Amino acid sequence: MSAELRSRRNVFAGLALDRCSERRPDHAWLEQALRAPETRFIVLDPDGKALLTADLRHLRELDRVEQCEWRVESAPTLLGVDENQAAHFLLAPDAPTALRVAEAGGGQFMDLRSAGLVLPAFEAGLFAYARGLAHWQARTRWCSACGSALMLEWAGHRGRCSNPDCAIEHYPRTDPAIIVIVTWRDACLLGRQATWPKGRFSTLAGFVEPGETLEDAVRREVFEEAGVRVVDSDYHSSQPWPFPSSLMLGFTARAEDPTIKVGDEIDEARWFEVDEFVRDVESGALGLPPPLSVSWRLIEHWLKQASGLELSELKSPSTWR
């Protein structure tokens, strides 16, 4: 399976959307899209929760009539156009308006972590995209160079300093982070943070630093957290992770030797051989990250390669929520 196909299986990565970046400064096109009957509006409240249908199975997107009728006056942000040529926009109203829209539309708001595993792939990806943009807009209101207010332009995708002597452009940021499954022979390395309940383990991860390649970040993070030296690493897949603005870059890696020396960033690190891993998962002694995370996919990949077993078929009494 190619890395592209592996990425598409990750939650939030199944967004088949033309982002229409070339259309963002085209005011005439935007006005036409906003008035089109097929256009839909995803609604996020100030906490970043999206409006879902009453059964919590789909996004409750508004049409143009509903937006006007319910007076949702938030400045729309263009997300893109789907395969049916319907445009999707983001609306981020204030809390009272969001509550009124939910009551009028018969829906309710849900956070992204909870919605990610119940929404269809396209809708989960759309929610993640919208949440990342909304967070950037809400947190980037002032120019970092001169302190003046920013004005949103480019259909919500660019901020420009309002000070004419500055006029610096600001764009949404994405923070790259590596996440890696390290192996030694047929064992995998998992770690746990001190704040996690006993028995919960996950793959190692960390942010990429300036001037660092992804492979360098893998080597550094694994050594900093577990004291294990990595011989080589290979890219596995990626996952948008808007909590609030990360891109998770999944890797597989091979250790030089199994010696562990836990650093200050995690509480514990352990090697799990296949038999021990399966036994502990099925007994509930080992808690794993949920399928929401690419970490789950990396563990799934290791287990399949090492034993031919499918992680989803293990009978686990515990769920990491």
Rank of each mutant, 00 (worst) to 15 (best):
S312M: 09
W142N: 13
A98G: 09
D82A: 05
D216K: 13
A253D: 03
R64F: 01
A86K: 06
R185H: 08
L190K: 07
E224S: 07
R35Q: 13
L34I: 02
F251R: 12
A13V: 05
P37F: 06
L91D: 08
P93K: 05
L133T: 10
G159I: 05
V262S: 14
P317L: 11
L30W: 09
L189N: 15
S144I: 11
L15S: 11
F251M: 11
V230H: 14
E268I: 14
W196I: 04
E300Q: 14
Q193E: 12
Q108W: 11
D94W: 04
L126W: 11
D232M: 05
A33N: 09
G263N: 00
G191D: 03
E22T: 10
K49P: 01
G147Q: 05
E282I: 10
A128C: 01
T203Y: 03
A149S: 13
P291M: 02
G206V: 04
E215N: 12
L78N: 04
A13T: 08
R35L: 11
E221F: 06
P290R: 15
W136K: 01
A36W: 11
L56G: 02
F272K: 01
P291R: 08
E209I: 13
M110H: 11
K198N: 10
A255N: 02
R139S: 08
A155P: 05
V278L: 07
A194W: 13
S144D: 15
A149I: 09
S148K: 10
L44T: 05
A253K: 01
F277C: 00
P176L: 13
A177H: 06
F127A: 11
A98D: 09
D234F: 12
R158I: 00
L311C: 08
R158M: 05
E313H: 12
E123S: 04
C68I: 09
H27K: 12
D111K: 14
P258C: 09
N163C: 06
E221M: 08
M110V: 08
E268H: 15
R220T: 04
D264W: 04
L34K: 14
P25T: 11
H27D: 10
F223E: 08
V228G: 11
E209L: 14
V281P: 02
G156I: 10
L62W: 06
L15C: 11
F223L: 12
T319M: 04
L79S: 11
V231K: 12
E73F: 03
E73G: 14
V278H: 07
S148V: 00
E4F: 02
C20I: 00
D55S: 07
F201K: 03
L303A: 09
R8Y: 06
E313Q: 12
G284C: 07
G308N: 01
T174L: 05
L292Y: 10
D186P: 04
D267S: 13
W184I: 12
S238A: 15
F251Y: 12
D267T: 05
A187P: 00
S316M: 03
G14Q: 15
P76A: 13
G284W: 05
V218S: 03
V274G: 06
M151V: 15
V278W: 05
R158V: 00
L314Y: 02
D55F: 02
A138S: 07
D26G: 04
R8E: 14
L59I: 00
S114A: 13
R158L: 01
E313S: 14
F272D: 00
E256L: 02
R6C: 03
E212M: 12
V208C: 13
G105S: 08
A155N: 02
A36F: 03
